[in-house]
């Protein structure tokens, strides 16, 4: 039986692997690009090992799986605390090493005038940073917050991370 992450593959669309909401995908195929659309309050996390040429992407929706244990069991990529460890394990299984990983985070936006009542996006950001801090992981690229939607892509051949917003692209990594 494969690892739990093996149940996640994203969806191949042409030369891309599309990562949906509450979804993750890893690949060692240098001819593909991982992409996730419509990051609002959700956060997209990318991992890239430039030596092993292994890439991974997670699109999680909420910070904490304690909210719904059954849902977390069925859909671990929905939550940061279950999805992030799963993403790391999945890239390790393809030969990536933690010390070489380039890690980026994108999304975590907020609806307007939230006034601190919900903070869905900012809680996602805070929770993710805590996970990374506890595990000595530094972010190489961070484009989070605001009230905008973002499309995130990771080019597997060289690890380039691109964020698209309002039809304009910005390279998040390398800077």
């Amino acid at each position: 039986m494969g690892s739990p992450a093996a149940t996640y593959t994203g969806t191949e669309v042409g030369d891309k692997i599309v990562v949906g909401v509450a979804d993750l995908a890893v690949t060692g195929d240098p001819s593909t690009t991982l992409v996730t659309y419509a990051l609002g309050s959700c956060i997209g996390v990318t991992l890239y090992d430039p030596i092993a040429k292994v890439a991974g992407m997670l699109h999680f929706m909420l910070p904490n799986s304690k909210l719904n244990a059954d849902k977390a069991k069925a859909l671990p990529a929905m939550f940061a605390d279950t999805g992030v460890p799963m993403l790391f394990k999945a890239v390790y299984e393809l030969g990536a090493e933690k010390r070489r990983l380039i890690v980026c985070a994108v999304g975590g936006a907020e609806v307007l005038a939230d006034d601190g009542h919900f903070k869905i996006g900012s809680r996602n950001r805070t929770f993710l940073r805590k996970i990374f801090w506890k595990n000595n992981i530094l972010l190489s690229g961070d484009d989070t917050g605001g009230s905008i939607s973002r499309t995130l892509s990771l080019v597997t051949a060289d690890g380039t991370v691109v964020v698209r917003h309002k039809g304009k692209e910005r390279v998040l990594w390398p800077q």
Binding site: V21, L39, G40, V111, L112, A113, S147, S149
Partner: peptide
């Protein structure tokens, strides 16, 4: 729906509850 990541387009989260 916005929080669930459904149909978020270029309008993003520029709405208020």
């Amino acid at each position: 729906c916005l929080w669930a990541g459904l149909a978020i387009g270029s309008d993003g989260l520029q709405y208020k509850l």
